[in-house]
Nucleic acid binder design. Sequence first.
DNA 1: AAGTCATACAACCGCCGGAAT
DNA 2: TATTCCGGCGGTTGTATGACT
Length: 189
Amino acid sequence: MAKSVENRALKKGAWSPEEDKKLIAYIKRYGIWNWAEMAKPAGLQRSGKSCRLRWVNYLRPGIKHGNFTKEEEETIIDLHEKLGNRSFHVQVVSSSGQIMVELNRWSVIASKLPGRTDNEIKNHWHAHLSKRLKYDLNSLPDMSDAEFDQYSSFKTDPPPTNVPNALISESSAATSTNSLPSSSSNPKQ
DNA sequence: AAGTCATACAACCGCCGGAAT
DNA sequence: TATTCCGGCGGTTGTATGACT
């Protein structure tokens, strides 16, 4: 009830420089203690999720913006191929003993690319790399994005039949390897 | 110059798992 | 043990911008 009234008052859409400044100033002063509660005292009419996303992906110190390098793209493609559409577990030794930690695909890839966020990597994947992979990069000569786009008139056509299945359907290939217990049981995914 | 289309990127939504109670 | 809340993730959408006709 009250919550829906609050939600209606929440601002959505692009962040203004003033909002950015408010969020940065608040976090510098008080740190991150509760995203849902922080927005109000920070003077922001935003949801906690929106504040968190803005901070994690754009305002946080050390975030790298701009074009992905070839090395970064190769890392993304390589890890995406290895990880597929799934999460997995790693063993971590902490002061309290050995524990299992679950990591997800994009955050794992992001951890290998300092300054890059999972959201940025995910967007880059969907915008550039997935379509490039669909066409089997290995069979093409080295080419720029512009050259690739020129080449890729397949966009609305079905993929050629000689492309391996693993490259045609990322999701189906990933599903077949999804044998580990996973938290990513979201039916949407 | 104006309209249309394609692309890139920022942000949102829905869902899930873990922690707290 | 059950419930609630919060943080985090993946997928998707909305919008600004540039290219093209």
